[in-house]
Design a protein around this nucleic acid. Structure first.
Length: 130
DNA sequence: TAATTGACCGATC
DNA sequence: AGATCGGCCAATT
């Protein structure tokens, strides 16, 4: 008995042109994140045109060519936390990179209202403190 | 072919 | 605030 999940998987698997196109959109979106700000996986997915594909964003970023210097570190999860296992090399590198850009961690979390893209726009429009 | 795996998310308690 | 849970779906095992 083949599961529904497997059926769906089969239907869209094997490098569908749609998915590959979307992957490129993901790269563009990520490239557009300003220094010192972050976007969540879900937001990137949505902005790239697939609202439910948060989990695919990491895949897309992993595929990015080295030369393009994708600012992958500016993508965090919806809780404002780094999604690599705490203490892993990926975790530390991402945290270091973000801190170098002025992003502040409080108890391992980033305040998305302040550093998120939306937060950034609100800051500009509202001129609110910090 | 089938099951498992994630750099996830939102609702809910 | 933190923990659980179901849904998600290409890639990997």
């Amino acid at each position: 008995m083949i599961s529904v999940n497997q059926q769906l998987n089969k239907k869209t698997t094997s490098a569908s042109p749609d998915f590959n196109t979307w992957v490129k959109s993901v790269w563009q979106v990520v490239q557009g994140i300003p220094r010192g700000h972050v976007l969540t996986y879900g937001e990137v997915a949505r902005l790239a045109g697939m609202s439910r594909a948060a989990r695919r964003v990491s895949q897309a970023m992993r595929r990015a060519p080295r030369g393009m210097n994708l600012p992958w570190h500016r993508v965090v999860n919806a809780q404002g936390k780094i999604s690599f296992p705490e203490g892993s090399s990926g975790y530390l590198e991402q945290k270091n990179r973000l801190q170098d850009e002025g992003v502040v961690f409080i108890k391992g979390k980033i305040d998305l209202d302040r550093y998120g893209y939306r937060g950034a726009l609100d800051s500009l429009l509202w001129g609110n403190p910090l």
